[in-house]
């Protein structure tokens, strides 16, 4: 038995070594860094991701199926039913996808805008830099939530406007980080020699600078996702969300406005709150993990990589 175990361990080690050898891909290094990322965060996030991707596997009923309203938790309905008799657990599971989609989609938009603006102003410097950074400062001073509330009131409240507005208003910190990193990288020898050899600015930005920005972009992207999810939840709670797409924030809002709090139905309003907290926390933890890794690498210097 012992021998067999030892053999199995040895064979997996060999297998990984051969992959590392043939693909020139250092698996052991990645395993070590993966351990350093916050494990709990990764597990939680994986759990929510599976929920979001395959809700039908976990939800006992369809979210639109109707039963007796205001039921307490029972075996048939683990978290009871709401005011119109939908199963709350099913609603919760299907809500994952919407909440996470809003978070990731708006973080994608904001990261993309931040990357463009930061790269351009950091690489070209001069007047363009002054203009773009001035614009960034102006956007930075706009109070987000009040503006979104006003926009939400004027525009038709839908999930897409929410994604767009959240994405368009949260790129400034990313732009600044990208700009400062770009300013640093553009002085490196390989960028200067690429300029000397006559590569186009676009090529230099895309192929020389961008690959070296990923480790500052990833944590920023994760944190932007987390904050977009929180913003979405708070806006939905205020009634500015899309009622046709039930996210966790909308569930909370309905629990508040349709008698969940008055009837003291903790099983209605606590689970979405807990889910929002845990999901945001897991994403933030992963983001912090990336940042931590980046810092460690900074301390060790390039040679130790």
């Amino acid at each position: 038995m012992m021998q067999k175990e030892a053999y199995l361990q040895e064979s997996t080690r060999r297998w990984k070594d051969s992959i590392a050898h043939y693909l020139n891909f250092d698996i052991w290094k990645y395993e070590r860094t993966l351990k350093k990322l916050n494990r709990e965060g990764l597990f939680l996030f994986a759990f929510f991701l599976v929920l979001a991707l395959f809700p039908s596997l976990f939800a006992p009923y369809s979210p639109t199926e109707r039963f007796i309203s205001y039921e307490s938790p029972s075996i048939a309905h683990l978290l009871g039913t709401n005011d119109i008799g939908n199963d709350i657990l099913s609603e919760l599971v299907y809500g994952t996808r919407i909440s996470m989609m809003v978070g990731f989609a708006s973080a994608c938009i904001s990261t993309l805008i931040g990357l463009m603006i930061g790269l351009c102003s950091g690489y070209f410097r001069g007047t363009l830099d002054e203009l773009l950074m001035g614009f960034t400062d102006v956007v930075l001073t706009i109070p987000k939530i009040p503006l979104i509330i006003i926009l939400g009131a004027f525009l038709h409240p839908s999930i897409w406007t929410l994604i767009l507005v959240l994405g368009l208003l949260s790129w400034e910190s990313i732009a600044r980080v990208v700009r400062s990193k770009t300013l640093q990288i553009r002085e490196a020898g390989y960028v200067k020699s690429a300029r000397c050899m006559g590569f186009s600015s676009f090529h230099i930005m895309r192929s020389e600078i961008f690959p070296n920005l990923t480790h500052v972009l990833l944590p920023k992207f994760m944190l932007a996702t987390a904050s977009a999810m929180i913003s979405e939840a708070s806006l939905s709670f205020l009634g500015l969300g899309d009622i046709s797409m039930k996210s966790w924030g909308i569930m909370l809002s309905f629990a508040f406005s349709r008698g969940g709090f008055i009837r003291d139905m903790g099983w209605w309003y606590i689970p979405p709150g807990v889910c929002i907290t845990l999901c945001v926390m897991s994403i933030a933890l992963i983001g912090f993990g990336f940042e931590e890794r980046d810092k460690e690498r900074g301390n060790r210097g390039v040679d130790a990589e």
């Binding site: 390989y190 200067k192 000397c196 070296n212």
Partner: peptide
């Protein structure tokens, strides 16, 4: 641009660390 090139002091910075 092609005819005049420059070689820099720090060899560790001469190539993009993310590329082979």
């Amino acid at each position: 641009r092609r005819s005049v090139q420059m070689m820099f002091q720090d060899p560790t910075e001469a190539f993009n660390p993310r590329k082979r």
